[in-house]
Amino acid sequence: MKVKLKVKRTDPEKGITGYSQYTLDMHDSATLLDALISAREYEDGSLALRCSCRSAICGSCAMRVDKRARLACRAKVIAITGGDEEHEILVEPMGNMPVIKDLVIDQESFWTKIRQVDPYLQPAGPVPEGEYRVPNEAMLDLTHTMNCIMCGGCVSDCTVLEVDKNFIAPAALAKAYRFAGDPRDGHTVERLQKLSEYGGIWDCTRCNMCVEVCPKGVAPMNRILQLREMAIEAGITNNTGARHTAIFTKSIVDGGRLNEVWMVPGSVGMFNLPRIMTELPGALKMLRAGKLPLAQVIPPGAPGSHKMKGMDRVRNVVRKSAMLKPKKAEVTD
């Protein structure tokens, strides 16, 4: 099988960037990593990339393949090209992290963010003589998160991090869940408080990119959503994100639809005038477009607020979904 690659190159010593093209003859079941290694070993010894295990457990070979972060060792060439030998695979270093050389990125900012979430178990009480007794379900749940190999793919393609370097980003937040959700850890509330600050769990826009690019099924965004539920459950609600969730829910439970008029003050705080003022131009635009119905001037829950038909059914759905909330497991003795 013919494999065509177009690889983004960065030579820090000469200060130049560009692209190299390689055409390789590979066996039909080759992965992109096989092709890159072949290029490096037999065509161009200057091509730099990290790789080691070849089986998606070491996390070294994450890179952007046709604009999406992937592990090269898990990317079958034939699956990328659909069998079209003329398809030139575009290979670039991961995003959101500086390039050292070619496909090798500097992961220091990645690890700094991991360290920000206090990524070590902080046991509640004295250490037991034997093992902690905990439910298997809790361990299996955490094992899904421990599946993370710290490849950085989710951070590379995180759309929030692209505009706000302060965001702790998906990998570190998933790591945070691994402790907040661990029945052996005694600092859940403190962790959730810290994670509710600026840059934390409420700054995710739920674009789902991290879920799509994660090669290990960790689904970081879903872990972020779990952390949000845990934070609200723990009463950590004095922040925009939690208030947004509350007014959103209230609005639905009350009237069956979003009350756009009260969303902003409900989220940023009723008396947060400066912040509300910044939203005014947007609100006026919505008003002009007829998207702020006058009936919604009455806040959700107040007498006379607008109600959709069939509210019983809406409330039923809300009640049922609330029952799905898992509770954090505890050490059993």
Partner: peptide
């Protein structure tokens, strides 16, 4: 286990 390895349980 005490440092946090999520061993499977009975």
């Amino acid at each position: 286990e005490h440092w946090g390895v999520v061993f499977s349980r009975k």
